[in-house]
Nucleic acid binder design. Structure first.
Length: 520
DNA sequence: GGATCCGTTGTAGCT
DNA sequence: AAGCTACAACGGATC
């Protein structure tokens, strides 16, 4: 009688899950204990670190994972709320020598690495944390290669990829194929009941239904109803992968990120012009390797775009940022972080921060994007450029960490390595190719790189209904409209919609000078 | 070692 | 309509 603990840590999925596949083919293992841990260090002791959209998305992913487990065995997901080391030691206490292995995934974040180390050292259970599950590269192995250098451009990360996965004759990196979802799982250990674990554990133990009750009490289902757009779960992730990538080779092959629209006019304005797969990758219900593989299949059919603009390019950036987040100390800080220039951001201005966060800056593009973020948990990457430039070096001159924290709470695809990377980059402090004088105009015209819709401005009208009747001529700068136009549009600036927070041209000029001065 | 090149996605104004 | 140029000009890699 032997049991394996399968800890779904960053991969909430059955496909391409090395820990799961190993357990399934291990003849020593008779039963599986599939667990998920809500770590208060990550979600907050009162779940305060996650916005309600994120919590709801997480819940739906867990619910789907539970259903998929139940469909394959007499088994269910057990959800703990507490410290992972304590969870593992209480399981050991309860099941003792019946447990012969713990399998989970490698986690590159500082807290995650600590936890893994403690479990390996203290838990008395042989533990294996599979690498290359949340990323394509084995991060630790890549960093330990002789001559490893922090990659800071597409060329450099492509070089690292080339060394790890030499290209085939057609010029594709030879990346290991994603693992197929096992046909059957193993049952839960005999005589194991949820209730019996509680005696040994100071935190909470949940089935999916009791977790639903808990989350209902937090009000996350009611508060997210109106804007909730991305349904969580591996099932949904695989459907979206099929719809957006596998069945659309033409779309994949012409995909060039800067050409995609940051605002759009589809029937549902929440539906991205990009694949919209990032939330599923971040939470691990879609394997990044699986996505790479599906893109490659399309690319093999004919001419296609390439890095950095292609979908593979986007994934290469993700790998690059993951490597950096592991190799650069203090990745999430402005102190002792070699990737972070010292800029004098001064003291926070709470009113500016709050206007930005709530989408009340008086700049319709910025406000529409921020309200989309709040409602749906997602924003196009170019939109993220616009709002982060606006908050930091462009207009409001607020510290990038403030914006990062708002994103971290609200974005469904929030991911420690990537969120910090993007803020370091977009605020201009990181030595990537972002010359600080390259500013985005928050009031773009039709030619803007943001690819906003300047013809109908449907995106603005959707997210800022107060401007619904405003003529396109003034929609990005409504305060410039004559009073009679404002009256006719039913929206008086300063009353129904805010005056602009500041003079955008003067602020940009001043900030540019200040940024330059900070560099010396 | 100094010059040159290059970097995921800028803007404004002109032709 | 796409493509050019001026704007102002970083910093690391490469030649």
């Amino acid at each position: 009688m032997s049991t394996a603990i399968l800890w779904f840590r960053k991969s909430l999925r059955l496909h391409d899950n090395p820990a799961l596949s190993e357990i399934c083919k291990d003849a020593q293992v008779e039963s599986i204990l599939p667990i998920f841990i809500l770590d208060p260090e990550i979600v907050g002791h009162q779940f305060e670190k996650y916005g309600s959209n994120r919590l709801r998305f997480l819940y739906e992913n867990l619910e789907d994972l539970n259903s998929r487990i139940q469909a394959k065995a007499e088994n269910s997901l057990i959800i703990f709320f507490g410290s992972p080391t304590e969870v593992i030691s209480s399981l050991h206490h309860k099941l003792g020598s019946r447990i012969n292995i713990l399998r989970s995934e490698y986690c590159s974040e500082p807290h995650g690495r600590n936890v893994s180390e403690l479990i390996i050292k203290d838990s008395n259970i042989p533990s294996h944390f599979h690498s290359a599950t949340h990323t394509i590269l084995d991060l630790e192995k890549t960093l330990s290669q002789p001559g490893f250098k922090n990659p800071k451009s597409m060329k450099e990360i492509e070089k690292i990829f080339g060394a790890a996965y030499p290209k085939d004759a057609e010029g594709f990196f030879k990346i290991p194929e994603p693992l197929i979802e096992p046909e059957y799982l193993k049952n839960a250990p005999d005589g194991f009941f949820l209730e019996s674990i509680s005696d040994h554990f100071s935190g909470e133990v949940h089935s999916i239904s009791s977790l639903k009750e808990k989350f209902s009490e937090l009000g996350i289902f009611e508060s997210t109803n109106s804007g909730f757009y991305f349904k969580g779960g591996e099932t949904e992730a695989l459907t979206r992968l099929e719809q957006k990538v596998s069945s659309q080779p033409d779309y994949v092959n012409v995909f060039r990120k800067p050409k995609t629209s940051s605002t759009n006019l589809r029937e549902n304005p929440s539906e991205p012009s990009t694949t919209g797969l990032s939330p599923y990758i971040a939470i691990g219900s879609l394997s990044v390797r699986q996505l790479w593989y599906e893109v490659e299949k399309a690319n093999r059919q004919g001419p296609h775009s390439g890095p950095p603009e292609s979908l593979h390019g986007q994934l290469l950036f993700r790998e690059m940022f993951y490597l950096l987040s592991l190799s650069v100390p203090n990745w999430d800080s402005d102190q002792d972080n070699s990737m972070c220039k010292k800029i004098n951001w001064g003291k926070n201005d709470e009113s500016k921060l709050s206007a930005w966060t709530k989408g009340q800056t008086g700049f319709p593009l910025i406000d529409a994007l921020m309200r989309q973020l709040d409602a749906t948990g997602w924003m196009h990457h170019l939109g993220r450029h616009a709002v982060s430039c606006f908050l930091t070096r462009g207009q409001l001159w607020q510290h990038w960490k403030e914006g990062r924290d708002v994103f971290d709470k609200k974005l469904l695809d929030s991911d420690w390595a990537l969120n910090n990377a993007n803020w370091l980059w977009l605020s201009g402090v990181a030595p990537f190719s972002m010359p600080y004088f390259r500013l985005y105009n928050p009031c773009p015209d039709g030619k803007s790189s943001l690819n906003v819709d300047a013809v109908e401005a449907g995106f603005i009208r959707h997210w800022l209904p107060e401007l619904k009747k405003f003529p396109v001529k003034y929609i990005y700068e409504p305060h410039l409209a004559p009073l009679n136009v404002q009256t006719e549009s039913g929206c008086i600036i300063g009353k129904d919609y805010p005056e602009p927070t500041l003079d955008r041209k003067a602020a940009a000029k001043k900030n540019l000078a200040q940024f330059k001065a900070s560099l010396n």
